[in-house]
Amino acid sequence: MGAFSWWHWLIVLVIVVLLFGGKGKISSIMGDFGKGLKSFKKNMKEEADAPAADADAKRIADDSASDEADSKKDTAAKS
């Protein structure tokens, strides 16, 4: 049977059936891999945006606190 014994050909046949047999196992594996990559990228983007959102929230809170202090000074000055 050539350079390989029948055990080698049997192993090759099993591998081929596992990879290409059935309902597109390679395409389903690659689809799952693509979904994983998309999920990873989405989470990395959300994580990168989170510190910027926290800084914006802190800035808004600081601005509103200074506005309240200014309005209290104006009220005290009018009295």
Rank of each mutant, 00 (worst) to 15 (best):
M1F: 10
M1Y: 07
M1G: 14
G2Q: 06
G2M: 06
G2R: 09
A3H: 08
A3Q: 08
A3N: 08
H8W: 09
W9E: 11
W9F: 14
L10N: 07
L10H: 06
V12T: 04
L13V: 01
V17L: 12
L18G: 06
L18F: 11
L18T: 06
L18E: 03
L19K: 03
L19C: 07
L19A: 09
F20R: 02
F20W: 08
G21E: 02
G22H: 02
G24T: 02
G24H: 08
K25D: 00
K25L: 07
K25P: 01
I26D: 00
I26V: 15
S27F: 07
S27C: 01
S27E: 11
S28T: 08
S28P: 01
S28V: 03
I29L: 15
I29K: 04
M30R: 11
G31V: 00
D32M: 14
D32N: 14
G34Y: 10
K35L: 09
G36P: 00
G36S: 04
L37V: 14
L37P: 00
K38R: 14
K38M: 08
K38A: 14
K38T: 13
S39L: 11
S39P: 01
S39N: 11
F40H: 05
F40W: 12
F40V: 07
K41A: 15
K41P: 00
K41W: 12
K42N: 11
N43T: 07
M44T: 06
E46T: 08
E47M: 12
E47V: 06
E47K: 15
A48L: 09
A50W: 10
A50G: 02
A50V: 00
P51F: 07
A52L: 15
A52T: 13
A52Q: 13
D54L: 12
D54Q: 13
A57I: 04
K58N: 03
K58M: 02
R59Q: 11
I60M: 10
I60S: 08
I60A: 15
I60P: 01
A61G: 10
D62I: 03
S64Y: 10
S64E: 15
S64N: 15
S64C: 01
A65Q: 13
A65D: 13
A65H: 05
S66D: 13
S66I: 05
S66H: 03
D67E: 13
E68H: 07
E68V: 08
A69K: 14
A69L: 10
D70Q: 11
S71T: 10
K72G: 00
D74L: 14
D74R: 13
D74P: 00
T75P: 00
T75G: 03
T75A: 15
T75D: 15
A76Q: 09
A77N: 11
K78L: 10
S79F: 10
S79T: 11
